[in-house]
Design a protein around this nucleic acid. Structure first.
Length: 552
RNA sequence: UGGGGUAUAGCCAAGCGGUAAGGCAGCGGGUUUUGAUCCCGCCAUUCGUUGGUUCAAAUCCAGCUACCCCAGCCA
């Protein structure tokens, strides 16, 4: 079938199309520029897919650049984790990994160029004084008393800053722009500050570090980035981005375009809140399967394909948005339904005994996928005692209930039709054992006499069953938008349910993280917490369940 | 009258002066040894709102309203 792969269309691609048409650019160069101060989350995936996706589709390149201008908050562990996440998503950055810190020498030079042009000055005002003199949203700011010192003085002072002659906070380098600008970021923004901090890339070479607004645009220019894509909150900063590029001697003229960041229902996507979840131990770590981090959703069992598909479905615009979890879930179900092998597991077991079963064990063939024969079959043991799901049996039920009912028939998936004859209960009235008979002439075929058996339930042979732990996840928060409320109060106390059950023997040693479907219950993958004694399976997502939706 | 942005279905989102794509969710029905999948059908006479221009407006113009962002030596 000739698939016409539909290219995404969005306002950024339209801009690129136009830039290519008019000859403004002959090739497209983008970059993904995370600060290595935390783990990547699904919102970053949107940016990654955008930047790398564009590079791919336009036969351009995309750099991975760590925006590492604030050594106090950053760490080499984060750069490693981020590299892994980008690779896992299936993207390859162009050439070597870049760092803004690669350009510290050049940045230092451009700062001096601004000073020489009378466009930057060293300011000894205190932070409080600077804040007061910045004015407000409705009032202009006041000029700093240091604003008119000569380029010579400023140059000497700036060199002294770099030499370590001033204390942290004692002074900073400011761009001389416009203290009355309606754009707050243009009121003589700080472009260099003093920090006696060890940097994960440059060590102790520097004690002054450039600010984001000064660094980012120049880094883009140095790397010859044609389209610099970032989120909406940087729209005002674009004026400063352009001002810096216009006032230093660089050839390239990269342009910044802003798109809206992703918001997901029932979770948080801000680094601050994510760190809080980890530090306050509301989750087990950055890769807790409930976390919206790339590491978390990977451990949960999401595939790179499903995340890319998600990013493609949500699109790229400038509209504020809150995407429903259902979109993400639909993406992973689509992928796993197509590609995950099937198996059987009983999460909440009750014993079922087939009284007329003779012999020890019968090995049956079960297809690994209901519609993809090429995925082959596996052997599953069938015997006198099996586990079935508690939920799949009722003493009595109306005809809408399609599972096992006392006195009625049901099919054991991939096996025979059975009939519930009698039960045993414990002192609390809980069913402990269901006694059945089976029809040996129903393997792979309907009953010969034309009886209709509508229900099918899954099961695991008791003797060969492998005890297993299942971790079932629910949303992390109880409120749609947890950003607005106190984090601890909004947490869902039932976001994790751990239960013990059984899996069929064939999947005991599946590879960690690889998705499979436990028929009728959901998609799962083996977790890294598995031990030889007890395999652990994460439920990635449940199957769609129209029965549960009916409220029975 | 500080500035910068954004308004199309429950959610996401196409549209770019010629009469409202698609996906998710939902609702009906069919197939089914997974209450899954798959298949078929339904789901905006109207685009924040009020006016204007036009033969024709979600698209152009004006006013209004709502929401988001900006006063770090964070990014």
């Amino acid at each position: 079938m000739a698939e016409v792969e539909s290219r995404p269309t969005n306002f950024i691609r339209q801009i690129i199309d136009k830039d290519l048409e008019t000859g403004l650019h002959s090739s497209v160069h983008t970059r993904f520029p995370p600060e290595p101060n935390g783990y990547l989350h699904i919102g970053h995936a949107k940016s990654i897919c955008l930047n790398f996706g564009i590079a791919q589709d336009y036969q351009g390149t995309c750099n991975l650049r760590f925006d590492d201008t604030n050594p106090e908050k950053e760490d080499i562990d984060y750069v490693n984790a981020i590299k892994e996440d980008v690779s896992w998503l299936g993207y390859q950055w162009d050439g070597e990994v870049r760092y803004s810190s690669n350009y510290f020498d050049q940045l230092f030079g451009y700062a001096k160029e601004l000073i020489n042009k009378g466009l930057a000055y060293v300011d000894f005002s205190t932070q409080e004084a600077m804040r007061e003199m910045r004015g407000s949203l409705t009032e202009p700011g006041q000029l700093s008393p240091y604003r008119d010192s000569s380029p010579e003085e400023n140059l000497a002072l700036f060199e002294k800053m770099a030499a370590g002659d001033f204390k942290e906070g004692e002074c900073c380098l400011r761009a001389k722009i416009d203290m009355a600008s309606p754009f707050m970021c243009m009121r003589d923004p700080v472009i260099y500050r003093v920090r006696f901090a060890h940097h994960h890339q440059t060590g102790d070479k520097w004690c002054i570090y450039p600010m984001y607004d000064f660094t980012h645009c120049i880094s883009d220019a140095i790397e010859n980035i044609s389209h610099s894509l970032c989120t909406l909150e940087f729209q005002d900063n674009r004026r400063l981005y352009d001002w810096v590029i216009d006032n230093i001697s660089v050839e390239a003229t990269p342009k910044q375009y802003e798109f809206s960041r992703l918001n997901l229902e029932y979770t948080v996507l801000s680094k601050r809140k994510l760190i809080q979840l980890v530090e306050e131990k509301h989750v087990s770590g950055w890769d807790d399967p409930r976390m919206p981090t790339i590491a978390g959703i990977r451990r949960r069992g999401y595939t790179p394909t499903s995340v890319r598909e998600f990013c493609s479905r949500i699109g790229v615009t400038k509209q504020d948005n809150v995407v429903e979890m259902g979109v993400l879930e639909s993406c992973i179900r689509d992928d796993l339904n197509e590609n995950a092998p099937r198996a059987m597991a009983v999460l909440e077991p009750v014993k079922l005994i087939i009284e007329n079963f003779e012999g020890d064990v019968e090995w049956l063939d079960a297809p690994n996928h209901p519609s993809k024969e090429e995925m082959g079959t596996r052997k599953i043991p069938f015997s006198k005692e099996v586990w079935i799901e508690k939920d799949d049996f009722r003493e009595e039920a109306n005809k809408k209930y399609k599972r096992l009912v006392l006195g009625k028939e049901v099919r054991l998936r991939n096996a025979y039709v059975i009939k519930a004859e009698r039960i045993e209960k414990d002192e609390n009235g809980e069913v402990t054992t269901i006694y059945c008979t089976y029809d040996p002439d129903t393997l792979g075929k309907a009953p010969a006499d034309g009886r209709k058996v509508k229900g099918v339930i899954h099961w695991v042979a008791a003797k060969q069953a492998v005890p297993a732990e299942f971790r079932l996840y629910d949303r992390l928060f109880n409120v749609e938008n947890p950003n607005k409320v106190e984090l601890a109060e909004a947490l869902n106390p039932n976001s994790l349910t751990v239960i013990q059950g059984f899996v069929e023997p064939s999947i005991k040693d599946v590879e960690i993280g690889v998705g499979m479907q436990f028929e009728r219950t959901g998609y799962f993958c083996r977790d890294k917490d598995s031990s030889e004694a007890l395999p652990v399976y994460n439920r990635t997502v449940a199957l769609r369940d129209t029965w549960a939706k009916m409220g029975e």
